[in-house]
């Protein structure tokens, strides 16, 4: 059974999520990936405010394909999250409460999710055509010159994700592997 959750995520909703839970997200999420992260962190380093208020927000690691005429967005699946590991603790300090990406996170980042009471969701990599259908509105809100890597405000409806790292320190990648690993008789 999937849990229906509306963004911005409340502390109660986050407390209720456990690694492995299937979630359908509805509401506003913001896209940001490698280049946008670098700029946000550099801006903050100079003492400037980030271009969007990150408090309570959900960040989606994606760089969509251009939309066909009549569409609002092209293919828009998650990109690999570990590349953002160096930036993530700062993003959480700035108030980010949830991140959507694919693949695992470093130990440091997993610990940061616990200490900041934030979650890391996984979306299915390589399902960008399907996920695009859950995106109802798109606006570029910062760094337009970055093209696909610009920060976009998305309004999503029933966007399917799974809890990979919860606020209690559980990790779906570790759990899944230990549950399904088996030994093979040597040849």
């Amino acid at each position: 059974m999937s849990k229906n959750i509306t963004t911005p995520l409340t502390d109660e909703a986050l407390a209720d999520l456990k690694a492995g839970d299937e979630v359908l997200l509805t509401g506003v999420i913001y896209t940001a990936r490698d280049a946008a992260h670098r700029r946000i962190i550099e801006a903050v380093g100079r003492g400037e405010a980030p271009p969007i208020d990150l408090k309570g927000q959900t960040i989606y690691y994606t760089g969509p394909t251009p939309p066909r005429p009549g569409h609002i967005i092209g293919s828009a699946g998650p990109t690999t999250a570990y590349r953002m590991d160096t930036f993530t603790p700062t993003m959480l300090e700035l108030g980010t409460k949830a991140i959507v990406g694919k693949g695992g996170r470093s130990k440091e980042v997993r610990d940061a999710f616990v200490s900041h009471k934030a979650v890391y969701f996984g979306a299915i990599g390589g399902s960008g055509a399907l996920l695009a259908g859950t995106i109802k509105k798109v606006d570029i809100v910062a760094y337009e010159d970055l093209g696909t890597e610009a920060i976009r405000r998305l309004e999503v409806e029933d966007f399917p994700v799974i809890v990979v790292n919860d606020i209690y320190g559980n990790d779906l990648l570790e759990q899944g592997k230990s549950e399904w690993k088996r030994t093979v008789a040597p040849r």
């Binding site: 569409h71 092209g74 293919s75 699946g77 390589g126 960008g128 055509a129 259908g133």
Partner: peptide, 14 residues
């Protein structure tokens, strides 16, 4: 996803 990409002629993956 592969069915949607083929039907709508949008990229399988971004």
């Amino acid at each position: 996803n592969s069915e949607i990409a083929a039907e709508k002629q949008i990229a399988l993956c971004q």
